[in-house]
């Protein structure tokens, strides 16, 4: 775009903001609804101006189930992603530096795991978890989520490790460093952004995950998305105030994350295959 005169630039920026607000409107409406009482939500015509209430959030805090499901969402995603990062870092280094025959094949398999419909993947796992009595076991759920995060992490970290020159490795080895030294003291410090991007986006994916938790999990490991499909009804109808408040609580963290880590959004949403600035 060329430099336009003042008012045209202003008009252009206003247009951009208009587009942004149109896309954000549904979310804004839900956040607004979270501050309404039941009667205000049911009001016709819908209320835009009203007296906000925090009762819905108090209800969430008071509800022991809501707290437990939120806690499950939180610890499952963070710990699983940390495990996945450790495992994936080692694997990505092996794929990047040793010309293994299986590299291309394994990278392909990992990528195709991202492409398969989740419901096709969950069938054999469901059988396995049922047979071994692993359903509703926190550790089994955690291990699954670690597995779930590995393909993306390997892809993204391999990209970043490829970007670190092999000369660093060679120099360290020639000077008497062991390969572990190369791994943790030479390569690891240089791929910080890759680790951050992998951590952030896996966190979002596990945070959003629904189907596997529904089928492989149970009451003890249930996360919020599953509770949306099973626990939202009270007295036969939808508990809309609770829905609005709970969705608000649940969607705020990803929004904050993409505000803070906006430059990783592209790499995160494309499996680490596309890099660039937005």
């Amino acid at each position: 775009m060329t430099r336009a005169s003042g008012w045209r630039r202003t008009a252009y920026h206003l247009l951009l903001w208009l587009v942004v607000l149109i896309f954000f409107a549904p979310v804004a409406w839900i956040i607004l609804s979270a501050f309404k009482t039941t009667n205000q939500i049911l009001a016709i015509p819908p209320l835009v101006v009203f007296e906000p209430t925090l009762d819905n959030f108090r209800q969430i805090v008071a509800d022991p189930n809501a707290g437990r499901f939120l806690w499950n969402s939180l610890w499952l995603s963070i710990i699983a992603v940390l495990i996945a990062l450790a495992v994936s870092f080692l694997a990505a280094y092996a794929f990047s530096r040793f010309n293994l025959k299986a590299t291309n094949f394994l990278m392909f398999v990992l990528l195709s795991m991202r492409m398969v419909p989740a419901v096709a993947v969950v069938i054999p796992l469901y059988l396995m978890y049922s047979a071994l009595g692993w359903r509703n076991q926190p550790l089994a759920m955690l291990a699954f989520y670690a597995m779930f995060s590995i393909p993306f992490s390997v892809w993204i970290l391999k990209g970043f490790i490829d970007g670190v020159s092999r000369r660093f490795d060679e120099t360290a080895l020639v000077n008497g460093g062991s390969r572990w030294h190369v791994l943790f003291r030479v390569v690891l410090p240089q791929i910080g952004p890759g680790l951050v991007a992998a951590f952030i986006f896996n966190l979002i994916f596990v945070w959003n995950e629904f189907l596997f938790n529904l089928l492989l999990g149970g009451r003890d490991v249930r996360n919020i998305p599953v509770s949306f499909s099973t626990d939202l009804y009270s007295d036969g109808g939808m508990n809309w105030t609770f829905v609005a408040a709970m969705t608000t609580v649940y969607i705020i963290p990803p929004m904050i994350i993409i505000y803070l880590f906006q430059r990783y959004l592209l790499v995160g949403m494309t499996f680490g295959t596309v890099r660039g600035e937005v």
Binding site: F23, F24, P26, V27, I204, W207, N208, F210, I224, P225, V226, F228, S229, Y250, I251, P254, M255, I257, I258, M269
Partner: peptide, 8 residues
Amino acid sequence: TPMVLTPV
């Protein structure tokens, strides 16, 4: 925001 929200 829409694309990082939980589909559920």
